[in-house]
Design a protein around this nucleic acid. Structure first.
Lengths: 357, 357
DNA sequence: TTGAAAGCGTTACCAA
DNA sequence: TTGGTAACGCTTTCAA
């Protein structure tokens, strides 16, 4: 493990000065350095497989090219990390790297995570949450360009901007598919009533009914929850009715809730989707796609959310505006406001036609 | 967002030189600096809320205090990130930070991920995989102290060390619990036959039978797979027998496989665990604990694996051997060899007594 | 007890 | 066209 080559080494091998090496390798060679020297420098650099020291660059440029990501449980938890993957892909493509810190849902650690990141001189900050929710933005986040992904500023709009799934649209789109399949007796097994995602999806459901000229069946709304057991309990209750009164489709809070619903149906001797259809939400990998039957579900655009958030964030970081020798000040316009991203409905089979009586 | 205070600022405010500030704040003040000056310096530092610039420190100390983690899909995927959480907790406690890079299961990106990390001058490297598997160690990993978590070097032992779950023990322990509950007709719905975790667990199963003085029922082994659909298919076949020939318990490859098994049982009108018991593996959060019935399962010690791996790794990093002014050379002893970590069996109810005929 | 200076690896300005 | 030098912020040795 010999020491890595420095610009000094390259200069010596090429028989020029350090400054010449710097100029040439950064593309400022033409018009400054004899083309013959340039060639020699490039050859020497390649021979020594010279790479500028990122740490020295950070110090010199006052820019680390690291984006700090704080998350409540996206990294540590058993949840889809696609928001971060999407964000990372965009960052990587621009020569940045993401440094993720997970608070494991301990709000006490929020501020210290931000502080750690700031101490490391990250160029910008992102806060990512597992589920859509309001966020008490941790102190310190205002000290760098920042954006929220899958959460929104508790102080209201006009503060930190965010990128969110378009839940209202998603709720409406789901209903459009269900109505389109001919169903009219629908049960809504929703998330907790005070949960923003549950509220927005319900709003979307209502909207789609109105748009279809149908009255919304308020008494078909059954607050359930996000877990298998929640879906099981709610579905068990809802399906305990005669065939002619029983809903023909269960719109579930998410895919795990849908798994519970299918279990409940099976326990009652009902087949899905022959006797009753079940629709999920999220398109959770390895759940929705491998469930029996595979779940028809509204896919959450997690990757796109991460990508969009990082794109907006990087627009505020000087060095990411490619070859930005100018403007060393962060430009925070474009960081405000909410951006809503739409998912797409994935029809896999758990949504079937209306069963004949 | 005014510029952060530097040691220079502190020195000026305290009326001393930069070097004095550095000495005092690093604990080398006694015997060098007048205690009165020391006090003044500390006050000034606090007043300006001075924090040494991490980037400058990295450059100066030739140590970034960043540990690079490459993973195949732990960050981006829908899987439990507890290995990384465990590793990160240990690192954080010693003043390190982890920089995770996910290849999204594209082996082509392995080497470039390592290169990116090395370019950033991480002090050490860890490779983490979602499932236990053999790893073709990417080129470049030998350039820094390195360790593997949940995977092992394809070149055999004696190369890169690793920390792994003790699958043989886990397989045996599971069987001990099942036998202890009185079951004798056991069906093994295993993972793919060529999968190391499946092989080791099976080895453990055999061992436990032998230890109990029982012959191992080789024809009760049914290669299934890791997904819900795999468990459903295998369990459907296995349970299609008369009550007196049917197994009384299904040992599943993992929790999702167990979900499939429960679905299959329900489809046949069988209750779990009244008519047939089902045992999972992994103790997957939000699956095992919220399943109906909640799954009895062998918990994978993911967090402990991450913690153990990071502990061993940091032992090889100079600055982590607290206040190590000496030995600037990495000490790679202790990085070789395999370390096996045991999980624990979690009994939640899906494992019941043997049903009466 | 203190201050000055070197060095970590870069880049960029300014003379020559 | 080129090379010397300052600066980024810090630690540590050496001389005063």
């Amino acid at each position: 493990m010999q020491r890595k080559a420095t610009a000094q080494d390259v200069a010596k091998l090429a028989g020029v000065s350090r400054s010449a090496v710097s100029l040439v390798l950064n593309g400022h060679g033409d018009g400054n350095i004899a083309s013959e020297s340039q060639e020699r420098i490039r050859r020497a650099a390649k021979e020594l497989s010279y790479k500028p020291n990122a740490v020295a660059l950070s110090l010199r440029n006052q820019q680390t090219r690291v984006i700090g990501i704080v998350s409540d449980r996206v990294i540590s938890g058993p949840v889809d990390g696609n928001i971060i993957a999407g964000a990372d892909a965009v960052a990587r493509e621009k020569g940045f790297v993401t440094l993720g810190l997970d608070t494991e849902e301990d709000a006490q650690r929020d501020a210290s995570a931000v502080e750690t990141l700031l101490d490391r001189h990250v160029d910008a900050l992102m806060y990512v949450t597992v589920g859509l929710r309001e966020l008490m933005v941790p102190t310190g986040m205002e000290k760098a360009p920042a954006i929220l992904a899958n959460c929104f500023d508790s102080r209201g709009p006009g503060h930190l901007g965010s990128v969110l799934p378009d839940e209202v649209w998603g709720g409406a789109e789901t209903v459009r598919h269900v109505l389109g399949a001919g169903h009219r007796r629908i049960a809504f097994l929703t998330g907790p009533v005070d949960h923003p995602a549950a509220q927005r999806r319900l709003e979307g459901h209502r909207f789609a009914f109105a748009a279809a000229g149908l009255p919304f069946p308020e008494d078909a709304v059954h607050p359930a929850g996000w877990d298998i057991s929640d879906g099981f309990a709610a579905a068990s209750a809802v399906l305990a009715a005669t065939a002619e009164n029983r809903p023909t489709v269960l719109l579930c809070a998410n895919d795990r809730c849908a798994v519970g619903a299918v279990l409940a149906a099976r326990a009652l001797g009902l087949d899905v989707p022959r006797d009753v259809s079940v629709v999920g939400y999220d398109d959770e990998e390895r759940i929705a796609d491998f469930m029996v039957p595979a779940l028809s579900t509204m896919a959450l655009p997690l990757r796109e959310i991460g990508a969009a958030a990082m794109t907006r964030l990087l627009a505020a970081v000087p060095g990411a505006r490619r070859k930005a020798t100018a403007g060393l000040q962060p430009d925070r316009s474009g960081l405000a406001g909410e951006e809503l991203i739409r998912g797409r409905f994935v029809d896999r089979g758990s949504l079937g036609p209306v069963p004949p009586l």
